[in-house]
Computed example of a mutant assay.
Amino acid sequence: MGNYDALLILSFGGPEGPEDVMPFLENVVRGRNVPRARLEEVAEHYHHFGGVSPINQQNRDLIEAVRPTLDVPVYWGNRNWAPFGEDTVRQMKEDGVRRAAVFATSAFAGYSSCRQYYEDIARISLPDGPELVKLPHYGDHPGFVTAMADRVREALAVLGRDDARLVFTAHSIPLAHAASAYESELRHSAALVNAALGRTEDWDLVWQSRSGPPQVPWLEPDVLDHLREVKAGGVVLAPIGFVSDHMEVVYDLDTEAVQVAGELGLPMARAGTVGTHPAFVRVVADLMAGPEPVPCTLETCPQV
Rank of each mutant, 00 (worst) to 15 (best):
K134S: 11
Y118K: 10
L132M: 08
A191L: 08
A178I: 02
A155G: 13
A181L: 11
R165H: 14
G143P: 03
A190D: 05
E183M: 00
A149N: 07
R199M: 13
R165V: 09
A155F: 09
R165Q: 15
W203N: 05
V193R: 08
H177R: 12
D150H: 06
L192E: 03
P142C: 10
A170D: 04
Y111M: 11
V152K: 06
S106P: 05
W218I: 05
H141W: 05
P130G: 13
A164P: 03
Y138H: 12
P213Q: 02
S106H: 07
H171R: 05
P213E: 11
D163R: 11
K134D: 00
V223H: 06
A170M: 05
V152R: 01
P127V: 13
S125T: 14
Q208P: 02
P214T: 02
E131D: 14
C114T: 11
Q208W: 02
L227G: 07
R199D: 13
E119M: 13
D204K: 13
A179R: 13
A196R: 12
L175S: 11
A107M: 12
R187S: 00
A149G: 10
R210S: 09
M148E: 04
A157I: 14
G143Q: 08
L159G: 03
R151T: 14
S113V: 08
E185L: 05
L135R: 08
A190Y: 03
Y117A: 11
V158M: 12
K134V: 06
D222G: 09
A178W: 01
L175M: 14
H171L: 10
D204W: 07
Y138Q: 03
R161E: 12
F144N: 01
S211T: 10
L159H: 06
A191Y: 00
A157S: 14
D222T: 02
L186V: 07
S189K: 04
P130T: 12
V206P: 03
V145N: 03
V133A: 08
D150A: 12
S112F: 15
L192C: 07
W203I: 07
H226P: 08
A157E: 15
V167K: 01
A181T: 10
F168P: 03
A196I: 00
L197I: 02
P136H: 06
A107S: 14
L132V: 04
G110Y: 01
V193F: 10
A176D: 13
E220A: 15
P142W: 10
Y111I: 08
Q208S: 05
Y118C: 09
D225L: 12
Y118P: 12
F108A: 08
